[in-house]
């Protein structure tokens, strides 16, 4: 698929912009729908449900961790890779953080720093296997997906939950700072950093070149292995940060933290217009994708119908999975049609 050039009628920035604008309209429509369908006035005459400011902050608060993972995955998917282990690594880091603080007796800043480093090491493990042994990212991260989660379970014996974190730590996850949920500031900082990395530096350029053509990037003298190692290691560090925020939000660190988050993160990235085949995509798209999923997830919980079914979580998962399938299909169908119209094209290896 990659060797065949796609002589596109429009150049890619405009097309990309179009995809993101489209997503923005969808997001707005979605938001308005939930605003009107999910907001009610209770018996005391107070506004409850989706339309309240509290609820909006809640959405922001709940989307930080998945948002961080999606940010970590964006450069990876740009290089035509994938990382299935981020959710498990989040769980492992949460446990490690709890253990360092609770059992290790370290101060919170020190424990946090160490956790970030350990997350980086976890990511570096992926990176080493992928770049040094040239193994497919899919199977490597499937292995570490199991390994990281398994280590978390082994450390806690499946039972221990670390709690009783001090208030100044919970402030990160449960309070507001300068009017916004505290973790949102962290999230926005990382978002800004990743945006700059991907769109404003030579690193991002390399990621895209590698995604389009790893051999072409090598022949251009780009350090392909180093760049790949960077994105996977970075993903580990960001997953660790997400673990700390998760712990602070819930006030507890458990082994099952972040289970299934990888799906939401991948969905957000693909929904945001980043091609699963690498090369094209943007962080802005990812952020919109995250917002669309977060609004969906929380909005459903506010709908009276769903509330009666008491199944907002499942509904959100179902819709997210379906959304991912539609986004994927939508990204290839036009190409397939175009290819089918011009000529019965030879199929690429699946």
């Amino acid at each position: 698929m990659r060797t065949e050039p796609q002589p596109s009628p429009r150049d890619w920035p405009t097309r990309l912009l179009r995809h993101e604008m489209l997503l923005l309209y969808v997001l707005l429509a979605e938001w308005l729908f939930f605003y009107f369908a999910g907001t009610t006035v209770n018996r005391k005459g107070v506004l409850v449900g989706f339309g309240t400011l509290d609820r909006q902050f809640d959405i922001l608060r709940h989307s930080c961790e998945i948002g961080l993972l999606a940010l970590a995955l964006t450069p990876i998917i740009l290089t035509a890779g994938i990382d299935l282990s981020v959710g498990s690594l989040l769980g492992l880091c949460a446990i490690l953080f709890g253990k360092l603080w609770h059992d290790g007796g370290l101060s919170l800043p020190l424990a946090t720093t160490l956790t970030l480093i350990l997350g980086g090491i976890g990511g570096a493990l992926n990176a080493t296997l992928i770049t040094a042994l040239r193994l497919p990212p899919l199977i490597v991260t499937l292995g570490t997906y199991s390994l990281f989660r398994g280590l978390a379970e082994a450390i806690t014996r499946g039972a221990i939950t670390y709690t009783d974190f001090p208030g100044e730590f919970l402030f990160i996850g449960q309070e507001r700072w300068l009017g916004l949920p505290t973790q949102a500031w962290l999230f926005f900082t990382v978002a800004l950093a990743v945006t700059l990395l991907v769109h404003r530096t030579t690193f991002g350029r390399s990621f895209r070149a590698i995604g389009f053509s790893p051999e072409g990037a090598r022949y251009a003298g780009l350090p392909v292995a180093r760049r790949l190692a960077l994105v996977y290691t970075l993903a580990g560090i960001i997953a660790a940060l997400a673990a700390i925020i998760y712990t602070a939000r819930l006030g507890q660190a458990k082994a099952d933290a972040g289970t299934g988050y990888e799906l939401f993160a991948i969905t957000a990235v693909v929904l945001g217009g980043t091609s699963i085949f690498g090369g094209t995509g943007s962080v802005y798209g990812t952020l919109l994708g995250v917002a669309a999923i977060a609004v969906l997830k929380n909005g459903l919980a506010c709908l009276p119908v769903v509330m009666r079914m008491n199944a907002a979580e499942e509904m959100a998962g179902l819709l997210t999975g379906a959304l991912l399938l539609f986004a994927l299909a939508g990204s290839v169908l036009p190409k397939l049609w175009a290819a089918g119209r011009s000529r019965r094209s030879p199929p690429s290896s699946p």
């Binding site: 060797t3 050039p5 796609q6 150049d11 890619w12 030579t202 350029r205 390399s206 895209r208 070149a209 389009f212 053509s213 051999e215 072409g216 990037a217 022949y219 251009a220 003298g221 780009l222 090369g279 094209t280």
Partner: peptide
């Protein structure tokens, strides 16, 4: 050149600057 010389999906300016980052 199609496989190694230029990245076909990237813009001309990006291709030209690629080796001299």
């Amino acid at each position: 050149r199609r496989r190694h010389g230029v990245v076909l999906e990237m813009a001309l300016e990006e291709n030209i600057s690629m080796a001299s980052h």
